[in-house]
């Protein structure tokens, strides 16, 4: 691994300045489970790592039934699933954070880091998109927000400009009769990269007979995690039925733009999008019905 400088500021403004000073040659260090591997393998090179784990804003995890969830970009996965109120309100997010790596990785890796790493297969990203998460991005000068589906721009690339960093994420409070789920397919049962991942969230009517709205997001089938608007639209206003689920799955399959690589083929991935969309929707509907 090439040499770099390590700084660990305690205040957000200092961190922003430390990042801005080095532009593209600086990288934020949260859990480190991606960046350290990439630096070691020579896939990325930096002059400075800015460890943000001592900064309060980036480590905030708070849930309020009216305001929703504030999830600091460096909060490790385990804190998300071990905080009871969060686990109860966002089972779809819990699905994802409990799948990132194994126990050791979940002890370090953060949802924000998963997003910034911008792997097409990042497990938390389809879940965030399905839940309507908003990213709060700051630079020394300004702060801006964007929906999670707009954050990744290409494999390993994000909207972050040199000098900007992701501070936290906001997830709206779960609507009444809503439910969400994230499912992925991997050849092993753990410690694997998603061949396909599907995040789904639904809001049902009071009778639990119809979809009020739905959001479906896909991982590992395009250069970035993908919000499939057509799949959500195929469900809105429809009866909760296998037929409507099938229509959404078809829309998801049509939207997928997978490639063939060592982890899967185009055909396999497209097929799995259908299978997993159906399964994720069924699970989300079940959760909404139990609500």
């Amino acid at each position: 691994m090439r040499s770099f400088e390590y700084v660990a500021p305690r205040v957000l403004s200092e961190a922003l300045a430390a990042v801005a000073e080095r532009g593209e040659r600086a990288r934020v260090l949260a859990g480190g489970t991606d960046i350290l591997v990439q630096l070691r393998a020579g896939r990325r090179q930096v002059d400075r790592l800015v460890d943000v784990k001592a900064i309060p804003e980036v480590n905030e995890l708070s849930y309020d039934p009216h305001r929703g969830l504030r999830l600091g970009a460096a909060v490790p996965c385990y804190r998300v699933y071990e905080q009871g109120s969060v686990a109860q309100a966002y089972p779809g997010l819990i699905d994802a954070v409990s799948l990132v790596g194994g126990t050791q990785i979940q002890g370090r890796a953060s949802v924000g880091g998963n997003l910034c790493n911008a792997a097409p297969s990042g497990d938390t990203i389809p879940a965030l998109i399905a839940l309507g998460a908003v990213c709060i991005v700051a630079s020394p000068a300004t702060t801006r927000e964007m929906p999670a589906e707009d954050f990744c721009t290409a494999p390993g690339r994000t909207v972050l400009q040199p000098g900007e960093m992701l501070v936290n994420l906001r997830i709206p409070p779960p609507a009444r009769r809503s439910g969400a789920a994230y499912l992925r397919f991997i050849p092993r049962n753990e410690m694997d990269i998603a061949v396909v991942g599907v995040g789904a969230s639904v809001v049902l009517d009071d009778a639990r007979q119809r979809f009020v709205s739905a959001r479906i997001a896909l991982g590992a089938v395009a250069p970035t995690p993908l919000l499939v608007k057509a799949a959500g639209e195929a469900l809105a206003g429809q009866d909760v039925s296998e037929r409507s689920i099938e229509a959404a799955a078809a829309a998801a399959m049509a939207a997928a733009r997978p490639i063939t690589d060592m982890r899967g083929t185009v055909e396999q991935r497209r097929h799995l999008v259908g299978a997993l969309t159906r399964r994720a929707l069924r699970r989300a509907i079940q959760r909404a019905s139990e609500e």
């Binding site: 390590y6 260090l29 859990g31 480190g32 489970t33 350290l36 591997v37 790592l49 460890d51 490790p76 385990y78 126990t103 050791q104 990785i105 002890g107 370090r108």
Partner: peptide, 9 residues
């Protein structure tokens, strides 16, 4: 907390 020490500086 359990971690992989290779992924901690």
């Amino acid at each position: 907390r359990l971690v992989d020490s290779c992924l901690v500086l």
